[in-house]
């Protein structure tokens, strides 16, 4: 078994209204100095050793992210 993390983020040129809403709320809560917030998704997958990197890329690109609007990073992590 291996732990795989996939992080999916909106592409820089895509409007991120959720991140903007968080950024807009921070000063109201008394937290100053945060210039920008981008919000994405974090997936943790427990996969069999038989699952190779190619397959993980296909999962990330074809399903977990939408390449039109999102970038993704796949990494294996120590459990």
């Amino acid at each position: 078994m291996a732990r795989v993390v996939v992080d999916v983020m909106p592409k820089p040129e895509i409007l991120d209204p959720q991140g903007q809403a968080v950024a807009g709320a921070l000063p109201r809560l008394g937290f100053h100095g945060v210039r920008d917030v981008r919000q994405g998704k974090h997936f943790e997958l427990d996969v069999d050793d038989s699952v190779d990197d190619d397959t993980l890329d296909k999962i990330a690109e074809g399903f977990l992210s939408n390449p039109v609007i999102e970038d993704f990073v796949v990494r294996r992590v120590d459990q």
Partner: peptide
């Protein structure tokens, strides 16, 4: 999402 049409739909501005 199926790739039959180009582009994508995302969250409305101002949520």
């Amino acid at each position: 999402e199926a790739g039959l049409l180009p582009g994508a739909l995302v969250r409305n501005h101002k949520l």
